[in-house]
């Protein structure tokens, strides 16, 4: 039983600090829309160090110009991959 959390707003809204304490072993995080800006930052390091999988919607990341940024180790997924990821987890919690 695992949950996929998604964040779709900019790190300035602070949603990661609300979401992160509620993650359980096996849960994962998907970043989309302005949430992809988390991948530019080291705020994700803590989650990654704890072994949580973090994914990033490639369409939204590419739209924003990630090329010369030192991205955190989130995995890129397109919409098809996002749908697959939803199927791999039992439910979603969407943070926006």
């Amino acid at each position: 039983m695992s949950t996929l959390h998604t964040i779709s707003k900019s790190p300035a809204k602070g949603l990661l600090s609300s979401c992160a304490p509620l993650l359980k072993q096996g849960d994962a995080l998907m970043l989309l829309e302005d949430g992809v800006y988390y991948s530019y930052q080291n705020e994700l390091d803590d989650l990654l160090a704890k072994g949580f999988e973090v994914y990033c919607l490639s369409e939204d990341l590419l739209a924003r110009g990630p090329a010369d940024k030192n991205l955190a180790e989130s995995k890129l997924l397109d919409y098809e991959g996002f749908v697959d990821l939803c199927c791999e987890h039992d439910k979603l919690v969407n943070w926006f």
Binding site: S8, C86, C87
Partner: peptide, 8 residues
């Protein structure tokens, strides 16, 4: 539904 996904 098996999955509910919200966008806002």
């Amino acid at each position: 539904s098996d999955r509910v996904v919200s966008f806002g």
